[in-house]
Design a binder for these strands. Structure first.
Lengths: 240, 240
DNA sequence: CCCGCTATTTGCGCTGGCGCAAAGACGGCG
DNA sequence: CGCCGTCTTTGCGCCAGCGCAAATAGCGGG
């Protein structure tokens, strides 16, 4: 029974992976959980470390990334509140395939391997829920792979930012702000390019009035214009 | 109770997704299955079609691919005997995210949504097995994504062929033969390049004595040399 | 054994985007 | 308030790999 940080644990019933368990199931799950505090920059786990726990993010945001043998970093995805991470621990994997780093101060609920095994034993529904989640992730990852294989850099950057907007966009006056710090380098790691190219691209977009950029800050002013670039319709006459 | 093609259905106990069910569980599963014959070139299902069945390949080989809006084809993976495909039907997806096409005459066991749901209900172990399989696929897809983002074409082709060898390689005199027809175009679709570049690359490798190529045929003569290229150690003096 | 179709090879020119390098901007801290 | 470290912008040259196009080579069928 963990000490709650500032989010009411009852909200566990809005977490997909614990859906359809009934109140007692969720209570049992909470019972076995422990809170993990992550300050911005801190890692929840590291690539190749033993996969000993499964997590659900409560508050904050994490970046899941891999390091290539050559030392380049590649971003797999960002995790927001209510999303699971470290799923390998439920999937029979021995080590984490990636590193999870907080990009904001965060709180996560964690379950060790043993607890998860017990819970799944008693509530097979959890396995089904996890399966559903994994299916979604796989489909999404395949879509990104397709994107990497067939689209040029500008278009990929467009998609990446559109994804960020959908996942972490906050309405502010003058557009939609990505609600955590994103550098040009970060966007480069999401899209398989260099920070230089990202910088040039965003500068161009800013001139077109599509985005507003700042130091580790990104606001989408014209979401429709962004979609135009990300999808296919190329220039689009001004006036619309 | 399907009419067996030529593979003894008892072999279902070597299929990961039905592991640890006990004989009666596997019998129940077989009971609900239907055989699907696929001639080379035929599709098991098409992208965006309603996901109404889940399959396990028995004999043959399939290609799972996506078509981009612009009409380019991208290969997600190849499926060999004992592997599951059409997993979305178990994962709550509504439509197939990709197309599955036989590249050899094949036989698959299929289960409709309803049957799968019933089986999972009675044998939750199936969900766990499927979860394990999905975890592996996700990890593998992420690895390919990382590859696409960080490696140049030659290296990617190397990896793709190494994967083919591991999955579908057959020892023959003079090397390891990929046991189904693969064209340059196919390899291009696996690696996100063009058939021209693949052709040039393979020709160069043939001159180095690493592979032996033919029309839709590929034999790896020097697996070690292939790994050298795929990994990092660059040229490697001859003599080893 | 020849024909036609498909797969493959190869030359050539072009360019998107990378790599390098250096010069600004922020923003936080002391 | 000014300094410093980090992030960002921008110029410049280069080259991997694409796109186009045309020539070849295998294979299967008649």
């Amino acid at each position: 029974m963990p000490h709650s940080p500032n989010l009411d644990p009852v909200l566990l019933d809005a977490v997909d992976v614990f859906a359809n368990l009934g109140p007692e199931g969720r209570a049992r799950a909470l019972d076995r959980a422990h809170w993990k505090k992550l300050e911005s920059g801190e890692q929840a786990f590291e690539q190749d470390a033993e996969a000993d726990a499964f997590y659900v993010l409560s508050v904050g945001r994490l970046k899941v990334s891999q390091l290539t043998p050559a030392g380049q970093e590649v971003t797999i995805r960002y995790i927001g509140p209510r999303e699971m991470f470290g799923c390998v621990a439920v999937c029979g994997g021995l080590t984490y395939p990636a590193t999870a780093t907080a990009v904001l101060d965060s709180w996560a609920l964690g379950w060790d391997r043993r607890s998860i095994a017990d819970l799944v034993q008693d509530y097979p529904q959890i396995a089904l829920n996890a399966l559903r989640g994994m299916g979604g992730r796989l489909t999404e990852t395949q879509a990104r792979l397709r994107e990497m294989q067939t689209e040029r850099v500008e278009r990929r950057i467009g998609h990446a930012i559109a994804r960020l907007v959908a996942q972490a966009g906050r309405r502010v006056e003058g557009g939609i702000l990505i609600d955590f710090p994103v550098s040009r380098q970060d966007i480069a790691e999401m899209t398989g390019t260099t920070l230089h190219t990202v910088s040039r691209t965003l500068t161009a977009w800013q001139k077109l009035g599509i985005v507003e950029v700042g130091r580790k800050k990104l606001t989408v002013v014209d979401p429709h214009g962004l979609v135009m670039i990300a999808e296919d319709l190329p220039p689009q006459q001004p006036g619309s």
